[in-house]
Structures are given as structure tokens and as C-alpha cells.
Amino acid sequence: MSAPMSSEAAQAIVPALREAIREAASLALPFFQAGGHTRAKIWSKAGGSPVTEADVAVDTFLKIRLSALLPEAAWLSEETSDDSVRLGHDLVWIVDPIDGTRAFLSGHPDWSIAVALLSGGEPLLGFVHAPATDRFYEARAGAGATCDGRPIAVSALGALDGARVAGPKPMIDKLSRGATQNGTAPTFVPVERVPSLALRIARVAEGVIDVGLISQDARDWDLAAADIILREAGGSVSMLDGQPTRYNRPEPIHGALIATAHGLRDQVVGALDGRA
């Protein structure tokens, strides 16, 4: 069983981790066709979701490199069969080799590589890299969040009216209904759909989206890396009752979630559960 890791100890592996993620991106990019269909071979997983040879190449590469970097850490990723041994480990890598595979397939730039390190069930390190636009978000517990090396912070917006809201339309409609007061619904600013869930949350962290809504069935690998980035930028990913997300459970599947700045969370929670 691995032992918990301090934020300071985690900092020592950050340079090598950045390098590994950029090398992984170099494996995926040759298969990506901006505005066109991927060059990669494609097949369907159980349940019908697509996977490409790029997903598998990135997953394999990162598993080898990250396991060598921190041998005591267990592993959970979208493209590797789950091993329950992770439940007995305090250190766990959580990886999505390509978050937003359908975007990758179709030539949309909003796909990402997401890597998190959990310690004691909480994200300690988080990296979300968007290779097509060369954006690199990262955070370490207690050390703040950055994008391309520059500090980022959530929006200072204090009211839902005028909020930039991204997510599935049914959840946006429910938020609007719940926030309606005296017959007047808030006005939301439309945000173009962000296919990568990790990127959607990262954009809340950098303040270009005020509220990110997440439908049920997201997995740990969709969330953990961006979660720590948002936490360190002044926000949170939480359940609809405002409780924080929990990771490395036997079934790494989540219900509907919200990603917001702390200043908007209570309003969003209240609107979605009918209390607003």
C-alpha cells in the first residue's frame, strides 16, 4: 500500500510529469486533422463509445512513464481494465488519454489529455493539456492553478443573471427555471459546447465560463485533474447538493455535477434543487 504524499514532495515530480504529457500529446497529434476526420483507426468499446489507436497509444505511453515515475502509485484510466488493487492505495494515477474522443475524431480542437494524482482519495496534482490549441493547465494542492505558466482564477461574477453557462441543455433549462424569481428568468450568456469535460471545468477555473454543468455518468478520469485545477483557482466541482466529489471508489462513476466559483455555488445548488 502506498503512503500519502505531501504537496511539496509532489512538486519534485512535476517537471518530469509535464514532459511526459507533452510527449504523449506528440503521439496523438499526428492522428488529429483540424476540421476533418481523424487518420486514426477507430473501433467501438462495450456500450458503443468510440476509441482510436491514438487513445490506446497515449494510455500505454503514460502508464509506462508514470508508473516508472512513481512506482508505488496505482492506476485508473479510461482505456485500461480496472484493477481493484487501487482501492488499497493512497496514491493513484487517474488518467484520460484523450478526453473528448468524438471531438478528436471530427477535427474539433477541444480535446485534452487529463492526468491527476490522488493522495488519500483527494487530487494532489492535476494537468489538463489541450494539444490542438497548445493550452496547458495545471495545479498542485495548496500552490494555485496556472494556464501556460500564468496564474488563473475563477470569475468574480456574483449573480446568475448574465452568467456564462456551459453544459447539457436540459440542465441549463432546469437551472434557469430554478433561478426564476417573480416570473423573471435569469439571462444566461450562451457558451459554445466544450466537448472535453476536463476542458469545460478548466475554463471555469480560468474564468471564461461561470457555471459548468455536468450530466450524470462522468467518470473519475473525466474529472479529477480539472477538479484540483478548479479548486486551486477558487471554485469546486460538487454534487447537486453542494457536497464535494469523491474519487477512487469501487465504481468511479458520478451523478450530475456542477463546476462553479465559490461565489456562485450556493445559488446554483439552490436553483437546481428548487430552493432558489
Rank of each mutant, 00 (worst) to 15 (best):
K174Y: 10
R177F: 12
P170K: 02
S176W: 01
T184A: 09
R193M: 14
T184R: 14
A185C: 09
M171I: 04
P170W: 01
M171E: 03
I172T: 11
M171C: 03
V189Y: 09
S176T: 10
P168L: 08
R177G: 02
G167I: 08
T180D: 01
A185Q: 05
A185P: 03
Q181V: 15
G183E: 01
N182V: 15
L175G: 00
V191A: 05
L175N: 01
A179C: 05
T184K: 12
K169S: 06
T184I: 14
F188G: 00
E192L: 14
A185Y: 00
M171P: 03
P170D: 01
P190S: 09
N182Y: 13
P170F: 00
K174R: 12
T184G: 06
T187P: 09
I172V: 10
K174T: 04
V194G: 07
P186S: 03
P195Y: 10
R193S: 15
S196V: 09
R193Y: 14
V189E: 12
S176N: 08
L175W: 06
K169Y: 05
N182E: 13
A179L: 04
V189D: 10
K174V: 04
V189G: 11
V191K: 07
N182M: 15
L175Y: 05
T180Q: 05
K174N: 06
Q181N: 13
D173H: 14
P190H: 05
K169D: 05
R193P: 15
L175T: 01
I172F: 05
I172E: 08
P168I: 06
L175F: 07
N182L: 14
T180C: 04
V191G: 08
F188R: 05
R193K: 15
P168S: 09
S196R: 14
T187M: 11
G167C: 06
A179Q: 03
M171T: 02
L175Q: 01
T187A: 15
G183L: 01
E192T: 15
D173M: 13
S196K: 12
R177Y: 11
G183Q: 02
D173Y: 15
P170H: 01
V189F: 10
A179S: 08
P190R: 04
R177A: 04
T184Y: 10
I172M: 07
Q181R: 15
A185S: 08
V189P: 14
P186F: 00
N182I: 13
G167F: 07
E192Q: 14
A179H: 02
R193N: 15
P168Q: 12
F188I: 08
P195T: 12
V191E: 02
N182F: 12
F188W: 06
P186Y: 00
G167N: 06
R177N: 05
D173T: 11
S176M: 07
S196T: 10
A185I: 03
P186C: 02
F188N: 04
D173E: 13
I172Q: 08
I172A: 09
S176F: 02
R193V: 15
P190W: 03
L175H: 05
D173G: 07
F188Y: 09
F188V: 08
M171F: 01
T184M: 11
R193F: 13
M171R: 03
Q181S: 13
T187C: 12
L175S: 01
P186E: 00
P190N: 07
K169W: 08
P195A: 09
I172Y: 06
V189K: 11
K169A: 07
P186M: 00
